[in-house]
Nucleic acid binder design. Sequence first.
DNA 1: CGGGTGACAACGT
DNA 2: AACGTTGCCACCC
Length: 120
Amino acid sequence: MTPRSPQSEAKQRTTAILRAVRAIQRGTFASYGEVARRAGLPGRARLVGTVLRESASSVKLPWHRVTGAGGRIAFPAGSRSAREQIRRLDREGVKARGNRVLQKPAASSPRTLDALLWKM
DNA sequence: CGGGTGACAACGT
DNA sequence: AACGTTGCCACCC
């Protein structure tokens, strides 16, 4: 839909990504790759990271609900950001050990989509 | 145009 | 489980 100027396209991508991130339910989490897919941008996990980094200081987002593949914390272990993310997740009932988020019993299951796609 | 980089992912060893 | 590789994509020099 609509205009196809290079910058407006970039803007649309950003919007789609932010929307996908905001849609992650409290107490759940999703990987960069999954956020990208939900935003209609399969294969652009890195873009998700880029957008989050740029939006960090300008927009309020549940950024802590975005993890690396399989629940891995993307920030360096022990870094300020990593601890902050783990603390925020913990407050929502999502526990982590080391730099890895543990699966939450009933609530979040970021695996379901993959499970369906990959018949696991 | 070419090379380096990064809040990534998948695969192999 | 921990790395190293390769594929990707957008950006910046």
